[in-house]
């Protein structure tokens, strides 16, 4: 099996067949181990940030960490940062849902139908590696600068990892399962719903996990380029208003968000795919 995959900066393999995957817990998936050395390292670096900003680095763009934390609490609680953050999250999730939905549907179609697969795969292969930010300028011409454009960019970014993983998952469905469904004389629709989709779920989830991380990045980039609202735009505005503490507050919030999103989807995955991970042991 040729390992097919896309951008993933979270857990690996778009190759759920890796037996090791069930055995080796993902980074961050384990809690409560003695990681005090690591936490100390993080604290030491934050301390270095604080000290360097206070004593050595003289720049408006390098506020002490304590001021960033204060800005985060001031701006993030019911103030502007809170609202732009909500707007970004909504944009991201809308784009994600649309892109993922399309990706799953197209992936199933491509995975099942040889004609579609042969017809569309060259196009997919050509569009897939297209760096998404490169699409922002032409999409501004096509769709304007609103949420429609940014949502399309996000959906586009999400589409391909999900599509490719889904198609791969569909093709990797155990033939015996399909034959079983056939001998029980289940129709096409029932076979897809009861066999093909659940069996492809490990692959689909890999795609979703990859895409979620990507969706956040792309949302922020689109907002930085096209403005309007959102945390990416906020980040730029605060930078141009020379309020670097607020800007870093947004960065910190993004880090927390990225961490939380990954945690959530990994948790959901572990729950939904309990049968899959248990099997790997």
């Amino acid at each position: 099996m040729v390992m097919q995959s896309t951008s993933d900066d979270t857990l690996p393999p778009t190759r759920p067949a890796d037996a090791a995957r069930g055995r080796v817990p993902a980074l961050g998936a384990r809690v409560g181990q003695s990681r005090w050395t690591g936490l100390l390292l993080v604290l030491a670096l934050l301390g270095l940030w604080e000290l360097s900003a206070r004593f050595w680095v003289d720049s408006a763009n390098w506020p002490p960490f304590s001021r960033v934390v204060m800005a985060l609490f001031e701006e993030g609680t019911g103030r502007e940062l809170f609202f732009v953050f909500a707007a970004s999250l909504r944009l991201m999730l809308t784009g994600f849902v649309i892109g993922a939905g399309l990706g799953i549907a197209l992936g199933v179609a491509i995975g099942l139908n040889r004609f579609l697969r042969e017809m569309l795969s060259p196009m997919v292969e050509l569009l897939r590696p297209l760096p998404v930010p490169g699409l922002v300028p032409p999409l501004i011409l096509l769709l304007g600068i609103d949420a429609a454009m940014k949502g399309t960019v996000v959906a586009f970014a999400v589409l391909f990892p999900v599509l490719i993983n889904t198609a791969q998952g569909v093709r990797a469905v155990e033939p015996t399962l399909l034959d079983t469904a056939r001998t029980f004389r289940h129709g096409r629709a029932r076979s897809i719903l009861a066999v093909i989709l659940p069996a492809s779920l490990p692959y689909i989830f890999s795609g979703l996990r990859i895409s979620l991380a990507l969706a956040l990045i792309v949302t922020v980039v689109a907002e930085m380029i096209a403005g309007g609202t959102g945390i990416g735009y906020y980040l730029m505005t605060m930078q141009y208003a020379m309020r670097s503490a607020e800007m870093y507050a947004a960065v910190v919030l993004l880090a927390v968000t990225g961490y939380a999103l990954n945690f959530i989807i990994v948790s959901v995955e572990r729950r939904v795919l309990r049968w899959y991970f248990a099997q790997q042991d």
Binding site: A213, G232, V251, L254, A255, G258
Partner: peptide
């Protein structure tokens, strides 16, 4: 875990 999820452009 702290640095990884950051959108790098930020």
């Amino acid at each position: 875990e702290v640095i990884r999820p950051l959108p790098k452009p930020a």
